[in-house]
């Protein structure tokens, strides 16, 4: 029976990253299509506490590997730890959400398993032994149907394309294993968190993004975001200019988001930005230039100065309460 192994991820604060549950939902879909069973793995210094949280999401088993050397995430230590588990389980498919950690780790793990890999998978097609992967190429301008011919198949998942697994699906067996520990040529030095009271960009229901048109003044963007309980995003141009931190960047080379409502203010809509947000349910564009490409993907557009529109929009939204 095909075995699907999904790797769970802990944030630096110890909590499970939300995208992990989308990845588990995707893993369940794949297991159903392939006629196999779903397993989940979590490794770290002391992952036992949060591993219990993974029990009720439809996996056959949750595999927990603890070692003091795994305190800080490093691809070089996590890859061997997870490769031995994948080999012991004879996993056919090994996947993880396309987070920064997923993108860093999975190719290294794939290399260890001599497996071919598909990045940013959006859907599984076919069934049985012939499951294929749908994934974006050329900044989302092309969708490709991809087949991996190695015995083990590795992938990362675009979390916004998969519904998160729901809890309460019976209790998976929690099994501990001893991860293989290898000396690392890389040392963790530090992690500087960018703290924000707003929701995480990839998890928010509403995103308000600013571009060049803001000229670096994000006050109105932030005020509207706070009115809506939204996350703040930005185009590549404003991140490159250093006006806002780069982790706010929405786009093929930044974060891919798919909120219920995406408001783009002063963003022209370069191909690479559109690739990061065009799966949003409703898109609003505010731009002075009526020819801006952003209007081609927007459900509702206003041709006007964002500094006039945003305060007015905030006031009008306030009236709805």
């Amino acid at each position: 029976m095909p075995i699907v192994l999904i790797i769970a991820e802990q944030q630096p604060d110890g909590h499970l990253r939300k995208a992990t549950f989308n990845a588990i939902g995707a893993g369940k879909q794949l297991a159903d299509k392939a006629g196999g069973e779903l397993h989940v793995a979590l490794v770290g210094k002391d992952p036992g506490k949060v591993a219990d949280e993974l029990k009720g999401y439809g996996a056959k088993a949750v595999h927990v590997g603890a070692a003091p050397e795994l305190e800080h995430y490093l691809a070089e230590t996590y890859a061997p730890a997870l490769a031995t588990l994948a080999q012991e389980l004879k996993a056919d498919y090994v996947g993880m959400a396309s987070t920064a950690q997923g993108k860093d780790l999975m190719p290294r793990l794939a290399a260890r398993l001599r497996a071919a890999m598909a990045t940013d998978v959006m859907a599984f097609n076919g069934g049985g032994a012939d499951v294929t992967f749908s994934r974006p190429m050329w900044a989302g301008n092309v969708f490709a149907e991809v087949k991996l011919t190695t015995p083990v198949k590795v992938f990362t998942l675009r979390a916004t394309e998969f519904t998160a697994a729901q809890g309460g699906q019976g209790a998976a067996e929690v099994k501990t294993f001893t991860p293989k520990v290898e000396a690392s040529k890389t040392k963790f030095v530090d992690f500087k968190e960018v703290k924000s009271a707003r929701p995480e960009l990839t998890e928010a229901r509403v995103v308000v993004s600013g571009g060049r048109g803001t000229k670096g003044d994000f006050k109105e963007i932030e005020a509207l975001a706070d009115e809506l309980g939204a996350a703040v995003g930005a185009s590549r141009a404003v991140c490159d200019a250093g006006w806002v931190p780069n982790d706010l960047q929405v786009g093929q080379t930044g974060k891919v988001v798919a909120p219920a409502l995406y408001i783009a203010a002063g963003i022209s809509g370069a191909i690479q930005h559109l690739a990061g947000m065009k799966s949003s349910k409703t898109i609003v564009a505010i731009n002075k230039d009526p020819e801006a490409p952003i209007f081609q993907v927007a459900d509702y557009g206003i041709v006007a100065d964002l500094f006039k529109v945003l305060p007015e929009l905030r006031a009008e939204l306030g009236k709805l309460k």
């Binding site: 630096p12 990253r17 920064a100 950690q101 040392k187 030095v189 530090d190 992690f191 968190e193 780069n246």
Partner: peptide, 13 residues
């Protein structure tokens, strides 16, 4: 390195 929610620093041999 640019990672989720911040910047991580590594030292590689």
């Amino acid at each position: 390195r640019e990672v989720d929610n911040g910047l991580a620093t590594l030292e590689c041999q």
